[in-house]
Simulated assay, not measured.
Amino acid sequence: MNTDEKKQLRKKILNERKKLSKEEVNTLSEKIISYLIKMEEFKNSKTIMTYLSFKEEVNTFKLIEKMMDLEKNVLTTYTDKNKNIIVPCKLKDLDESLDENPFGYLEPKEDLIEEVDPGQIDLIITPGLAFDKKGNRIGYGGGYYDKLLARAPQAIKIALSYDFQILSKVPNGKFDIPVDYIVTPTKIIVCEN
């Protein structure tokens, strides 16, 4: 699949996602989170990194609250625009620690960033637009997560996804890192990678 085809696929999935109402996002997200927190891989992980959901993505804010209640070490990402990478950092709370960045999504405030070595992460919740049963994923096109996942080979990688984002085949290149599990509102997919 070439770059234009990936672009078209991203556009198609984004358009599909935009059709979801806020209520649908919340209902589907709750189902996904209820599956996730019952997984042994989740239960056994102490340090978990997750993305901060944006627009119609699977809502991770309720998940973050649950993780904090379970006394997990919750990490999220900060984008280092100079190095073109995402940096895992400790998330202290959802009220005082976050700021909206120029792209419109929330990130940790720069003066509160407490960077964490990717080698200390047990589990990484990864975003994405499309996935297949082998764990291949298409993200938003920057390669940020692939770079991070390459720096945390020990971490279990779990994607949160709506059912319509699961495709029969997603192209992958030599720098693409597949996920180990995909959790949807109806099932947990153990990836064949």
Rank of each mutant, 00 (worst) to 15 (best):
K38E: 13
K38T: 07
M39D: 05
M39F: 09
E40D: 13
E40F: 08
E41M: 10
F42K: 03
F42D: 02
S45N: 04
K46V: 11
T47L: 05
T47V: 15
T47H: 07
T47E: 07
I48N: 03
M49A: 15
T50R: 00
Y51N: 02
Y51A: 04
Y51L: 05
Y51K: 01
Y51Q: 03
L52E: 01
L52T: 01
S53N: 08
F54C: 07
F54K: 02
K55P: 12
K55L: 10
E57G: 03
E57W: 03
N59K: 13
T60D: 03
F61G: 10
K62V: 15
L63F: 06
E65R: 11
E65D: 12
E65K: 10
E65V: 14
K66Q: 13
M68T: 11
D69G: 07
D69K: 13
L70Y: 11
L70Q: 13
E71R: 11
E71D: 06
N73H: 10
T76Y: 07
T77D: 13
T77P: 12
T77W: 13
T77E: 15
Y78I: 08
Y78S: 06
T79A: 10
T79I: 09
D80S: 09
D80P: 03
K81Q: 08
K81Y: 12
N82D: 15
N82F: 11
N84E: 13
I85T: 10
I85C: 07
I85V: 07
P88T: 09
P88M: 07
P88D: 13
P88G: 08
C89V: 14
C89M: 07
K90C: 12
K92V: 14
K92A: 15
D95N: 13
E96N: 14
S97K: 07
L98P: 03
L98Q: 06
L98D: 07
D99N: 11
D99H: 09
E100M: 10
E100W: 07
P102R: 06
F103L: 15
F103Q: 10
Y105L: 11
Y105C: 12
Y105N: 14
E107V: 05
E107F: 01
P108Y: 08
P108A: 11
E110Y: 07
L112F: 14
L112I: 15
E114V: 14
E114F: 12
E115W: 08
E115L: 09
E115A: 12
E115T: 12
V116I: 14
D117I: 11
P118K: 05
P118G: 09
P118H: 11
G119W: 15
D122F: 06
I124N: 01
I125G: 00
T126A: 04
P127E: 05
G128I: 00
G128W: 00
G128L: 01
A130G: 04
D132V: 03
K133M: 12
K133Y: 12
G135Y: 02
G139P: 01
Y140N: 01
Y140Q: 04
G141I: 00
G141D: 02
G142M: 09
G143C: 03
Y144S: 02
Y145V: 01
Y145F: 03
D146G: 00
K147W: 01
K147V: 01
K147Y: 02
K147G: 00
L148F: 04
L148A: 00
L148R: 01
L148P: 02
L149H: 00
L149I: 00
Q154Y: 06
Q154L: 09
Q154K: 06
